[in-house]
Nucleic acid binder design. Structure first.
Lengths: 132, 132
DNA sequence: ATAATACCTAGAAATTTGATAGGGATTAAA
DNA sequence: TTTAATCCCTATCAAATTTCTAGGTATTAT
């Protein structure tokens, strides 16, 4: 049960954006340089974050990406749910499992899912960049 | 961040063993039949669980698998850590990450790791088969 | 003896992940 | 008004991992 690099990389990028919150947009090459990630791969992650309304972008020369809300109002949970396409650790949590009532293990996944989200929703981007 | 089928299947098999705890050994074909899993694949999962001392087996005709401890003394956490080869959601939690001190995201993974384990260690096999 | 079983290892098949590539649209600035 | 820097979009490849299959060996109750 590993987090994919999408989640890890994307969160790093979000930290970078948070660090410069209020200073205008950061370009893709800049973010890639700071985080040491491939531009083209990172671009795809940023497009997901944008689709989910966590960041926004301006196009054209001197354009770039920026947070859509203040760092203290964005949780790590939101970011990871966006990048990982949900944090459901088993499929039956997303689709509605029709064996829910008889399944002996369903309760485990649902409890764990709740705990994971509670934990991650309790951490804001601001905490990360300010070192708690 | 999905649990692999090893975890899901293996936990189901453990439930089956728990349901018949004290009644002697269950054969692989029997367990596979009850859980609707491939015998050969399940066999590999059981061998992992055995290596980690959660179950034991007797060989030869009328042999089979059985829990090494009572269902109330085996936690879901133990089972999943065995099958998933640890529940570290990122690699830097297992190996020692040398950037630990400067990494902005390390704290997130370590908090989440603690929560996941706490949650799963708090659920026993007995709870599962007795429906809480 | 025999048949039912666990044990072991190799590898095929399928899926997912991580990354690359190239071109199009937009826009600030020279 | 041109240019260069940027975001945007989509297709595809390579590598890794996961899931599953196959075939044989060792053991033991009957």
């Amino acid at each position: 049960m590993k987090l994919s690099s999408k989640g890890r990389y994307g969160l790093k990028a979000m930290c970078e954006l948070a660090k410069h919150y209020g200073e205008g947009a950061l370009s893709l090459p800049y973010i890639a340089g700071e985080t040491l990630l491939s531009e083209k791969y990172l671009e795809q992650l940023l497009s997901v974050l944008k689709k989910d309304n966590l960041i926004d972008a301006t196009r054209g020369a001197s354009g770039g990406y920026f947070l859509k809300r203040a760092p203290e109002e964005i949780s790590v949970g939101e970011i990871l749910r966006s990048l990982e396409n949900g944090l459901e650790i088993v499929d039956c949590l997303s689709g509605d499992c029709k064996n829910k009532s008889t399944c002996q293990t369903y309760g485990v996944w649902s409890r764990l899912y709740r705990e994971i989200n509670k934990c991650l929703d309790g951490i804001s981007l601001k905490e990360l960049v300010e070192g708690e």
